[in-house]
Design a protein around this nucleic acid. Sequence first.
DNA 1: AGCAATTTGATTGTGCACAATGTAGAGCAC
DNA 2: GTGCTCTACATTGTGCACAATCAAATTGCT
Lengths: 257, 257
Amino acid sequence: MNETKPIETDPGPEDGGSTGDGKLPLLEKLRGRTEGEIRRRILQAIFEQRLPAGESITEEQLAATFDVSRTVIRQAVARLAQDGILVKSPNKGTAVASPSRKEARDILFVRRLVEPEIVRLLASAPHRFGLTELRKHLAEENEARLAGQRGTLVRLTGEFHLLLAELSGNQVLLRLMTQLQTLTCLAVLLYAEHDEACPRDEHLRIVDAIAAGDGGTAAQEMLNHLTHVEKDLKLDRMTPESSFGDAMGWLRGVPDN
Amino acid sequence: MNETKPIETDPGPEDGGSTGDGKLPLLEKLRGRTEGEIRRRILQAIFEQRLPAGESITEEQLAATFDVSRTVIRQAVARLAQDGILVKSPNKGTAVASPSRKEARDILFVRRLVEPEIVRLLASAPHRFGLTELRKHLAEENEARLAGQRGTLVRLTGEFHLLLAELSGNQVLLRLMTQLQTLTCLAVLLYAEHDEACPRDEHLRIVDAIAAGDGGTAAQEMLNHLTHVEKDLKLDRMTPESSFGDAMGWLRGVPDN
DNA sequence: AGCAATTTGATTGTGCACAATGTAGAGCAC
DNA sequence: GTGCTCTACATTGTGCACAATCAAATTGCT
């Protein structure tokens, strides 16, 4: 139990592009000892299924694995727990969240509400720079798809939706989508039928509609896309691991489908 | 600078109903020394404008005020900062967020996307118990309005929207609305023209539409309501305190209105 | 044998001390 | 007088040790 499990993410792709620290303060920070970096690495470990959903972990394990004090781990875990990535049982331990089928449906429901309107907004104001960024992203996706780099492809297809939110210029939307996208990844890992993520050229059709300034089509394409994503998840089965909350919801008469 | 400012919220209305702790573990916890309680009290201090928007505070100040260690304050501050209530500058201090007019518009934009669909959903499945809860809440609102208890009224009118989200049975929606509602409160404190919050009987009309099972009307009423709320905020003026991010967005050509 | 109370182990929660860092002000050179 | 540097302070970041709490195993009783 005390042996440090090989959760360590390969320190190679540590491009600190998202940290936002303009200055590099010391050597230590760059080695990923800061809270944000630890959080990123935990997330990466989850997405690469080194930390499978439902896995129970302790703060001390993580502290040993990342070779930092429990204090830093604590902050990272608290934040991930607030985002719903981890679930904390008071004195029993922390576990990687394993969203129930209903939770997965709830997440997709909100995304269907929000994302079509994002692309509608983008289509209504075709700022040129945004299009170039989107085209560049699509090219990267294609490249990864052709090269068969599945991990990279999954990451990029997820980031596509985040890029849309970012281009909307609405920080609130971006924060919301960041949370939802991460949770969606978890659900995909649990319930996806096909291995492919965001498989077809649906991203391309969305971007084309935006470029054409056709908000209605863009919104419809996004809706189709999200519907396909949800269809690919096997969420219609009876949920054996349904949380107690779901049962309560059912008892109260809330429709479950 | 070291003198502890009278941020202390009156310990009277400490009804620990929202903590969810079924068991009362020790005496200490009940006096509000736990992280969630501290967070609640900080929020309350902000909403009662004992901590005005933009006010700069330090962890040590808060620690002294609430008579707890900086460790607990740190967690509470971190979480509030993640929700956008507080803004943390790396080594300069923490401040109460003062959302720019654009941020306020962004918040309301997302609410206009989401909340009409919430009430549409509720109208499509008129679960009886939810209606009774809604009616009860409306009664409480009226009571507070007639009694002239402005603080209570503001709290209740905010909780109305949270109640709707809760009744939808979608935990993701509830979490989202909780964040948005808090931020809206901040914006109202900054930019509201009239003192009244959610003034007219618009809540009643929404509930009536839900009760009638008329999702379209319910959604429209909610949209009207949110539009009125935004109209009451003076968000059309040129924003003198616009954050740097807004300026960057403008430079990039994102439409600002 | 079955059940319950208690002890034990594991895990999180909290406080405190020190390190790192950024800011402002005084002092000095030009 | 102006600009620069350097020092002192204020604030946050981090590590560590102890306290509180909970789950389970063990042991004693019926």
